[in-house]
Amino acid sequence: MTTPPLLAFDQLRAGYAEPVVGPLSFQLRAGEVVGLAGPNGSGKSTVFNVLTGSARRFAGRIHRLDGAGIACQAQTPYQGGELPLRGDELFRIMGSDPKVLPQALSVLLPRRLDRLSGGQRQSLVVWSALGHPGAIVLLDEPTNNLDAQGRALLIEGLQHLAPHRAALVISHDDAFLDQVCHRAVHLTPDGAPQPEAA
């Protein structure tokens, strides 16, 4: 018996003043990592934004499995301005378990976010989303600013995502998507989909 998808997009057209992406139809099932790829301006983040209520759904449907929580990592919400917040406090406000952090990153937990490098900060933000108990993980450009080690750790983390969870990874980094995704939806510059296997 096929399990119902955690998240399903059915002929979704979304945008702001007018549609910028779609019609999109794809599903996210437990155990899957699905990529959403495309050039800048193709509407990748608009799909993320329509889920968070900051973009408008013009047509189609989005169905989320009842009770499936979502962990959201938005693209660069915090650029490193002065902020007295420690890494472990970041995990606490997200309700995340810091034990998910690889050893190499856990040393960052007692440090203030604004005193970390951009890549270290990005790692903590992404991993705090991965540590959230929600079944659906939404990551928007998670490799921004990551160095080779941070990128490798994230690839390993996504490859070992718990089987009851699924991730939608939005990225313009095709090589990264190739390594972590079971399949990917590629968008053209005008926001139309070109589905293909990862």
């Binding site: 979502i70 959201c72 938005a74 406000i93 997200m94 933000v125």
Partner: peptide, 17 residues
């Protein structure tokens, strides 16, 4: 407090839930 901090660092997370 937690919601105010989350609005700053994880915008959209609460709305998505």
């Amino acid at each position: 407090s937690r919601r105010l901090l989350r609005q700053r660092l994880f915008p959209g997370h609460d709305a998505a839930n």
